[in-house]
């Protein structure tokens, strides 16, 4: 227990240092991009006075170190990431509005990846070298090589447009007083409106599936390989000799060690979901964080870019920390090594 806590604490400190370095690097690199973001925002005919006023207001006329210090102080003390040139609002407000929707999208996608990835991987491994295995391997190969937007268009066309099972993108709209968490499914439940909750899930289903399908396929392949590798291990042979039932052999003795590579890859995939979601968000008209991130980058919005990079860094780090903790729980050898 103590070793585990030391390990987690060390990782937490690492993450903090990485985030600080990351924010400073991004902050510096933005200044290297040619052109004046304020002029681009206000347009070619804006008066010099208003350009100067906004430049001063945004601290962009100060030395880089002063700007960074000011920004960091506001982030730490007030959670204020600065003002966005794209939306003319505080970036923290934008994050509060857009991030929950994308997190919801990614969380549901992550759930699909875990459940279906492990399920298909296990089935494929259990029935290895049979027609079932071959079909799953073929489909997963197809899933890995096909980009998510292709599935998005296909699903929209078949399930939304032709069969009318799902809406053609968009999310149910909530009146402002009913938006509490920003995650619509949770807000719908908090309202006690189950039909709205169903509608939210219905709206999320196709975008989640489009986003997750490639990762499900990849996850299934990884899990299958891990299981097939462990089938020949000594401890499985011992368990078989000891007369352990087949189901117990698969779900207890084989699944647990096979989960370590699966979980590691899963972490990377989940962390990258948010960054990859912008096409899906655009296609399914979900005004989310990934699309916002792309827009701030395209519009060279300095505080927006630093904030989204920072948030991506935090999410990447937290997801990986969770995965590491999971791996530590599964494999005591890592726990002991980490505490050394």
């Amino acid at each position: 227990m103590k070793e585990g806590l030391i390990y987690v604490f060390k990782r937490f400190i690492h993450i903090l240092i990485i985030l600080l370095v990351l924010s400073f690097i991004v902050f510096s690199f933005i200044r290297l991009i040619p052109g004046d973001p304020v002029k681009s925002t206000l347009g070619p005919l804006a008066s010099e006075e208003s350009v100067n006023r906004m430049t001063h207001e945004l601290y962009l006329d100060r030395p880089l170190v002063v700007q960074y210090g000011h920004w960091l102080k506001n982030v730490v003390t007030q959670g204020d990431f600065g003002k966005s040139l794209l939306t003319s609002r505080p970036v923290s407000l934008d994050i509060k509005e857009y991030l929950p929707r994308s997190l919801e999208l990614c969380f549901l996608s992550a759930l699909m990846i875990l459940v279906f990835g492990v399920l298909f991987g296990t089935i494929s491994a259990v029935f290895r070298n049979t027609w079932i295995d071959n079909v799953i391997r073929f489909l997963t190969y197809l899933g890995v090589v096909t980009p998510p937007y292709a599935f998005g268009v296909l699903f929209l066309l078949i399930f939304s447009y032709l069969l009318k099972w799902f809406p053609i993108g968009g999310l149910p709209r909530f009146s402002p007083e009913n938006v509490r968490t920003g995650m619509l499914s949770i807000d719908a439940l908090l309202m006690g409106n189950f039909s709205l909750f169903i509608k939210v899930l219905q709206s999320y289903f196709l975008p989640c599936l489009s986003l997750a399908i490639g990762s499900i396929a990849y996850q299934a392949r990884i899990h299958r390989s891990a299981m097939v590798e462990n089938v020949n291990a000594d401890f499985i042979a011992f368990a078989e000799v000891a007369g352990v039932s087949k189901s117990k052999l698969i779900f207890k003795h084989l699944m647990k060690p096979s989960f370590i590579p699966t979980l590691t890859v899963y972490g990377l995939q989940v962390a990258s979901l948010l960054g990859n979601a912008f096409i899906i968000e655009s296609m399914f008209r979900i005004n989310g964080f990934s699309q916002y991130s792309l827009n701030v980058i395209l519009n060279k919005d300095p505080y927006g870019i630093v904030a989204v990079t920072f948030i991506f860094g935090v999410i990447f780090a937290v997801v990986n920390l969770c995965i590491d903790i999971g791996v530590v729980a599964l494999d005591p050898r890592i726990r002991l090594k980490g505490a050394e």
Binding site: P167, G170, P172, L196, F205
Partner: peptide
Amino acid sequence: VGCSGNKTQETGEKTQAAVATE
């Protein structure tokens, strides 16, 4: 939820970019 079919058009309830439910 997916298989239950989208009643959007039948009930007149719309999604975010179409007509607002709430």
